[in-house]
Nucleic acid binder design. Structure first.
Lengths: 141, 141
DNA sequence: AAAAAGTATTTCGCGTATGAAATATTATTG
DNA sequence: CAATAATATTTCATACGCGAAATACTTTTT
């Protein structure tokens, strides 16, 4: 690892792990035909029926403009719908389309267990260590 | 955090931390005028004088095409130079320009301690825990 | 030495990701 | 109630990040 510092090592690892998370854990993602962020949005929609763009942003910790783009691509695939609120026409609700619901049903197991599968070989103790470490990390950033 | 799983929590934290890392620890990055990946490339160049694109890719764990893009943007700012090897004209060497060297000199401290500064409040023990956790994580992905 | 195989880099298409500006609408306030 | 402020979302410009295809060479085979 050259002569580089621990700080650098940590940052590198985060980058590397994140990249692997986004660019798919091999086949699992491919079978759903969704990317990771798309799957995450579908996942939260499957539990909430109907959400504002800003609610999705908050839940998945991305800014509105990013989420708007993800919704664009999901809408293009006919997986979600945009619905203008009638009470306040500034608000846009997002909900799963029929096709979206079918996907959720078909890949229910994959979607629900996706992240757990990644860590299936981790012991409970390892998970706790990782989590604690990451939370410490977040606090310092 | 809703009713979500530990796996999901870990993945979310990684995404969140990575995003904060890339999008800059506020002012530190801004003063250099570089983005995080650009700073990382400048950093390795400052220690190696002259590197092939593929060597940079390996060192910073990004694929060639990504590095090529980063080099494009550094070159546009006149911070690095591309130099075709005379022995083997397929090879492109990258080196810092005068301006690049000036930046390294001027922000030496920032560049060298950038990552350590992030974790300045972490104890040695915390650092080890984080590192061990991340390495475990990487193995499972 | 011409064809084929291999190597190094760039280009391309796609999908994030952000912040700032633009748009559209609703609420406030002078 | 008209000007202004506030809110919700989208659009825009910029920069990653990847894999696949293209390009440009070099080495190996035949």
């Amino acid at each position: 690892m050259d002569d580089l510092s621990k700080g650098y090592e940590i940052a590198s690892l985060i980058r590397e792990i994140n990249s692997k998370l986004n660019h798919g854990i091999k086949n699992q993602l491919k079978e759903t035909g969704l990317t990771m962020p798309q799957l995450i949005v579908v996942k939260v929609l499957s539990k909430n029926k109907r959400l504002k763009v800003s609610e999705i942003s908050k839940k998945i910790k991305l800014v509105n403009s990013t989420v708007s783009g993800i919704i664009d691509r999901l809408e293009k695939q006919d997986i979600v719908r945009r619905i203008r609120s009638k009470e306040d026409r500034r608000i846009v609700y997002i909900e799963l389309s029929n096709k979206g619901n079918d996907i959720v049903k078909k890949y229910q197991h994959t979607i629900n267990n996706f992240f757990n599968n990644i860590f299936i070989n981790c012991s409970e103790e390892e998970m706790e260590t990782i989590l604690k470490g990451l939370e410490t990390l977040r606090k310092h950033i």
